[in-house]
Write a protein that binds this DNA or RNA. Structure first.
Length: 649
DNA sequence: GAGTTTGAAACT
DNA sequence: CAGTTTCAAACTC
């Protein structure tokens, strides 16, 4: 299957390919492709992943606000409810409408009907003129050619909104195809739903918003957690890339590489009408024009980002994005974006002030797109206070002022992982950390504080890294997917996706990926002499030992913590008594002269004791008492010095 | 810390 | 797809 259309390939870094969606589609059994009754329970199929390929997207608020009527929807084969609008775009075919959430349906136009094929693909063809519902293309909803916007939204069974917003330009052929003909090359929007998971596709902000581009920033308030979406692309192609438009201009797009944990942020300049994205399935003959466009999105900021209801989307209050930096936040997530609109001359010098590793990719052709690709782990690795200034050299030649300082606080899984469970530093020496041997690379993270040699797994070597990612994905499209995921129903909750291949370790050492993941080997393992199964006495023994060791470690840690706390408390309580005005005493108060004077005092005391024929014990006591007095005098003097000289001198 | 063992990844 | 090599982590001493 052609995963990435030529136009998106030209638009995005090479490595941005959706393996997860591919796998997802491949994993979907046939029964899931058939349309079940709406009331049918959730299909049992569970993707072999623990990390749900949810997607964070920013859905333009005005997309739904532009809608004027209500209740346009249909259902997918998986039971997902879809909402299609506006009705003027669609002339009906077969699928019956279903009721959906008022939050979603409000302000949406009615449509007569639309067909969602049993393969979970919603195909909307733009056909000029009258209805195309001539039966020649079953399962196809027909768009009118006016370039109108289409919103596909709905609710999953869990009530989460599913939205697909399309720019009006989507029903034009992609500019990247050059000779594309809108009529001959109908736009197809392929929507892949995943069992029980909401789907969101977000259109290009610039395309959607038109003159309302200033509203884009507010749209950032909407964060959607999404399962899988494929959008854009032409006939026979599937797009699984994720670009989430933030605004225009500038546009900030999150790009998710499904199957991996790379999160990208792309800042894109405004696209003009001439360079507006046009989707088509035909070949890309003009890659220079690359507008922001909606693409497949996936996960990784996943899990922790809650789904925002369609109502929330509509409640976003448009507010012009002016020169002042705006902090766009969502009440439901800590994610935010600061986007000051500053004029070009002020920006260009900032190119030299970018944080290390920031990648600026020259704009293509038309020059209206410049972007930076920042893997989210990098975002999480840089200080939160760091601002990333992104722009494009070619952008400077345009009339559109661009300066985007984006501070992304991705509060997703990767962030928490990065902060709470920092990856063990790698020690790669020969792989340049660009092969899956490297744990950092394999987990989609940059090397950070590692001990590697000749490391290329950083933004200084972004091009090499991207090539390596692509190479890995070529070899194995799911190379960046978690290996440990859910097994089939009735099996263990977690299991290795490929199974191990151990021969000598008995699968009871960390050489074994199953054992390392603290899971038992399964039927798909090809190991020899496996002892990593439920009833294995060796395994039980090891588990007990490991548990005991863990308890010991925890106890030791607790003891250390308690001791440290006690010491700290003691110092806190005693410090005021030995200081003057708080703070530390001058650290140079024990000078050579002071020490000599102290020793003289002690010797004098010793001589006194000797002269008076005191017993040794008494002599020692007298000396110690003298020492105590000396110390008190020293401390007292030091305190006075500190008072006279606030700076430690 | 150096050397060995191990199995996944990469290569052929 | 199987066999071999490479690689880095796990392990041992």
């Amino acid at each position: 299957m052609d995963v990435v259309s030529p136009e998106l390939n030209s638009l995005l870094p090479d490595e941005i390919m959706d393996t997860e969606a591919i796998a997802m589609e491949e994993e979907l059994p046939a029964e899931h492709l058939a349309a079940p009754p709406q009331s049918e329970p959730e299909p049992p199929q569970v993707p072999m992943e623990t990390e749900l390929p949810e997607i964070v997207s920013l859905c333009p608020a005005t997309t739904s606000m532009q809608m004027t009527s209500t209740d346009a929807q249909c259902s997918t084969s998986s039971g997902t409810q879809l909402l299609l609008a506006p009705s003027s775009l669609i002339s009906g075919t077969t699928t019956s409408a279903k009721t959906t959430s008022p939050a979603v349906t409000q302000n949406l136009p009615k449509i007569s009907s639309v067909t969602v094929p049993a393969n979970h693909q919603l195909i909307i063809n733009k056909v000029s003129g009258a209805s195309a519902a001539d039966g020649k293309s079953p399962g196809t909803a027909v768009l009118k050619p006016e370039g109108q916007k289409l919103l596909v939204a709905g609710l999953s069974k869990t009530g989460q909104p599913i939205m697909l917003a399309l720019p009006h330009t989507w029903n034009k052929p992609a500019t990247t195809q050059g000779t594309g003909d809108a009529k001959a090359q109908p736009t197809q929007i392929k929507m892949l739903t995943t069992v029980g998971k909401p789907v969101i596709a977000v259109s290009s902000a610039s395309q959607l918003m038109g003159s309302s581009s200033t509203l884009q920033a507010q749209q950032l308030k909407t964060l959607q957690t999404v399962k899988s979406v494929q959008t854009v692309g032409g006939v026979g192609t599937s797009q699984f890339k994720t670009i989430i438009p933030f605004s225009t201009p500038p546009n900030v797009q999150q790009i998710q590489v499904p199957g991996s944990r790379f999160h990208y942020v792309r800042l894109v300049t405004a696209t003009t009408g001439s360079s507006t994205a046009q989707s088509s399935g035909s070949t890309n003959t003009n890659p220079s024009i690359q507008p922001a466009k909606p693409v497949m999105m996936n996960a990784a900021v996943r899990m922790s980002v809650p789904i925002v209801s369609a109502q929330s989307i509509k409640q976003v209050v448009p507010k012009p994005l002016t020169s002042a930096a705006q902090v766009v936040t969502t009440s439901q997530t800590p994610q935010r974006l600061i986007m000051p609109a500053t004029h070009l001359p002020q920006i260009q010098p900032n190119l030299t002030n970018l944080p290390p590793g920031t990648v600026l990719t020259p704009a293509h052709g038309s020059g209206n797109m410049g972007y930076a690709v920042l893997p989210a782990p990098y975002v999480t690795q840089i200080p939160q206070s760091a601002f990333v200034t992104l722009t494009s050299s070619s952008t400077f030649s345009t009339a559109t002022p661009i300066q985007t300082q984006a501070r992304l606080s991705l509060n997703g899984l990767s962030t928490s992982e990065a902060t709470s469970r920092p990856r063990k530093p790698c020690n790669c020496t020969r792989s340049q950390c660009l092969k899956l041997y490297c744990d950092c690379f394999a987990n989609g993270e940059f090397c950070n504080n590692c001990n590697c040699v000749n490391c290329f797994n950083n933004l200084d070597h972004e091009s090499e890294r991207l090539k390596a990612i692509k190479s890995c994905l070529d070899r194995n499209p799911v190379a960046f997917k978690p290996k440990i995921g859910k097994g089939k129903e009735g099996e263990s909750d977690r299991r290795h996706s490929k199974g191990c291949n151990c021969k000598k370790s008995g699968c009871l050492k960390n050489y074994c990926e199953c054992y390392e993941a603290k899971i038992m080997c399964s039927s798909i393992c090809k190991c020899m002499g496996c002892k990593n199964f439920e009833e294995s006495p060796e395994r039980k023994t090891l588990m007990h030992l490991a548990d005991a060791a863990e308890v010991r470690v925890q106890q030791q840690t607790a003891a250390k913590t308690k001791l440290s706390s006690q010491i700290s408390d003691l110092l806190t309580r005693t410090t005021p008594a030995i200081t003057s005005g708080g703070g530390k005493l001058p650290y140079t108060f024990v000078t050579k002269e002071v020490a000599e004077a102290t020793c003289d005092c002690l010797l004098e005391q010793a001589e006194q004791a000797e002269l008076t024929d005191q017993p040794q014990a008494v002599a020692e006591r007298l000396i110690l008492e003298e020492f105590g007095r000396c110390l008190r005098r020293i401390i007292s003097f030091a305190g006075k010095v500190k008072t006279d000289c606030p700076i430690n001198c």
